Simulated assay, not measured.
Amino acid sequence: MTSIDSEPGRRERKKAATRRALSEAAMRLFLERGFDEVTVREIAEVADVSTTTLMNYFPTKEALVFDLDGEIERSLVAAVAERPPDISVPEALRRYLRERAERAVSGRHASRFMKLVLTTPALSDYWRKMWLRHEDALTRALAREFGQADRNLRCQALAHFALEAFTLATQSADAVPMIDVAFDILEHGWSPGEEPSD
């Protein structure tokens, strides 16, 4: 007879719960003391697991901060693939990224998280590389929408610039307006001699 704990569904739920507990423990410590002041061993002790177990789930300390990578990529692709029929692709991306920017600056936890990321060089670099890794998935989603080859250059350019608009916004004191400015330029171009509006 098969043990309940050996059932795939139960095992996956336990793994997900352990992963979540590790990430939450790490974030509590990072927000309290700063990323550089916390060791992997301390995180493992707080989560009551071995350091080896922690490293099996998160191969780097930076990865503990960004546990939602897969979920973000899925939501980014869905913003394009599942948009209402009367919404253009650039407008769907603008709305999605504006919403993310609003959450990053308005929620107490989200704003503390972004401050931690942007003021810690190792995290800032890791986050930017991680965020831009979504470029391939977004390029493929755009190519499907427009009936183009997966590596279509226009789709790749739109994916890259849309993602870069968000990284620019997170570093701006006016994050949400920056998204709109970036997408206005993406959609309508820049006229010679045009003065940017505040």
Rank of each mutant, 00 (worst) to 15 (best):
69 D>P: 00
80 V>I: 08
107 G>T: 12
56 N>I: 07
64 L>V: 00
174 D>K: 11
179 I>V: 07
138 L>Y: 05
183 F>I: 06
172 S>Q: 05
150 D>Q: 09
55 M>A: 07
160 H>Q: 14
185 I>D: 07
118 L>M: 06
89 V>N: 02
107 G>Q: 12
154 R>Q: 14
130 M>G: 05
106 S>M: 12
135 E>I: 08
86 D>K: 12
123 L>C: 10
128 R>T: 10
68 L>W: 05
122 A>D: 04
91 E>G: 13
161 F>W: 13
114 M>N: 12
98 R>M: 06
153 L>T: 14
50 S>D: 13
153 L>P: 06
76 L>K: 00
172 S>T: 08
161 F>L: 13
78 A>Y: 01
55 M>R: 13
135 E>P: 02
85 P>L: 13
183 F>Y: 08
88 S>I: 07
164 E>I: 07
99 E>C: 13
182 A>R: 09
46 V>M: 14
150 D>N: 09
137 A>T: 05
178 M>N: 09
109 H>T: 10
49 V>I: 11
129 K>H: 06
98 R>L: 08
152 N>D: 15
158 L>S: 10
136 D>P: 02
139 T>A: 12
140 R>V: 15
84 P>Q: 05
140 R>Q: 15
142 L>K: 06
119 T>E: 07
96 Y>M: 01
110 A>G: 15
90 P>E: 06
162 A>H: 12
113 F>D: 03
106 S>N: 15
94 R>K: 04
